[in-house]
């Protein structure tokens, strides 16, 4: 399978993680004003802004590493679906509140050990971004885990929907731990992390919450991959249409 690359491997690496945060930020932003409670609406807006902030740091740094004249906005708004390298998990649509919270939880449980590892990166800028992001990610995890347990151990309806969300999203989780040549190179250089090393801590966090939520671990399914290579589910294109149309229709517009 093709790998999306830019002129510099480090930039490619930064864009992957930037895209994860950018796409999830947009997904969460779509949900603003739809949350079941005002307080939760504010919480989701906050979490979306946290992800957007991380995305901005990573994409701006990627743009400077790249040195091709693109900036963070160009990376966010002027790349096509095929050039986005986010994980498939974060582009999954907001089917219902359970899906939103389970998607968030599965990703938070991955981001905490990811940022913990990258906080020790040999690249000091990336290490600095990670050191900030890990504080936010720990909070996100506490928030989403709390909801997973509340919903799973709640009413019959909320239990059913939460189990359904885990079952639906499970096939997109394996991708987080599948590395490619770039991951190997980045880990060998002390800049990045081997994704496979994040699976054990992720599983501990996830299985413990599933047990607390009185849910069942989903059965093994075929692992879906492709996001890191730009092969996405149908959902991403629609999302980018909404996210990018203003810059596409009015290039260079500022406000």
């Amino acid at each position: 399978m093709d790998t999306i690359t830019t002129s510099r491997p480090l930039a490619t690496y930064l864009i992957r993680h930037g895209d994860d945060n950018l796409v999830l930020a947009q997904r969460l932003a779509e949900y603003i004003s739809w949350a079941p409670e005002l307080e939760e609406d504010l919480a989701i807006a906050n979490i979306a802004l946290d992800h957007l902030g991380v995305a901005h740091h990573l994409l701006a740094y990627a743009a400077s590493v790249e040195g091709d004249g693109r900036d963070a906005d160009a990376l966010a708004f002027l790349r096509s679906e095929r050039e986005f390298t986010n994980l498939l998990l974060v582009e999954r649509p907001n089917d219902d509140f359970a899906v939103i919270m389970v998607r968030q939880f599965l990703f938070d449980a991955y981001q905490v050990p990811l940022w913990e590892a990258l906080a020790g990166s040999a690249d000091t800028t990336l290490a600095g971004i990670a050191a900030k992001a890990v504080k936010e990610a720990r909070y996100h995890l506490r928030h989403s885990r709390n909801w997973v347990v509340t919903l799973g151990d709640g009413t019959e309806e909320s239990h059913r929907r939460t189990q359904h969300a885990f079952d639906e999203l499970w096939r997109f989780t394996g991708e987080m731990f599948v590395g490619d040549a770039l991951d190997t190179d980045m880990a060998a250089a002390g800049i990045g992390v081997d994704p496979a090393s994040l699976e054990a801590p992720w599983r501990r966090t996830v299985l413990e919450a599933i047990a607390d939520a009185t849910l069942s671990e989903p059965e093994d399914t075929t692992v879906r991959v492709g996001g890191r290579s730009g092969f996405h589910t149908e959902a991403l294109g629609h999302m980018l249409g909404e996210m990018q149309w203003l810059q596409r229709a009015y290039p260079g517009l500022e406000w």
């Binding site: 739809w34 079941p36 649509p93 009413t155 999302m239």
Partner: peptide, 18 residues
Amino acid sequence: MSYSVPKIAGESDTIVGR
């Protein structure tokens, strides 16, 4: 292109954790 915020089916009639 137009893409509206998705309708979240059934959210309003489900009461959880109250």
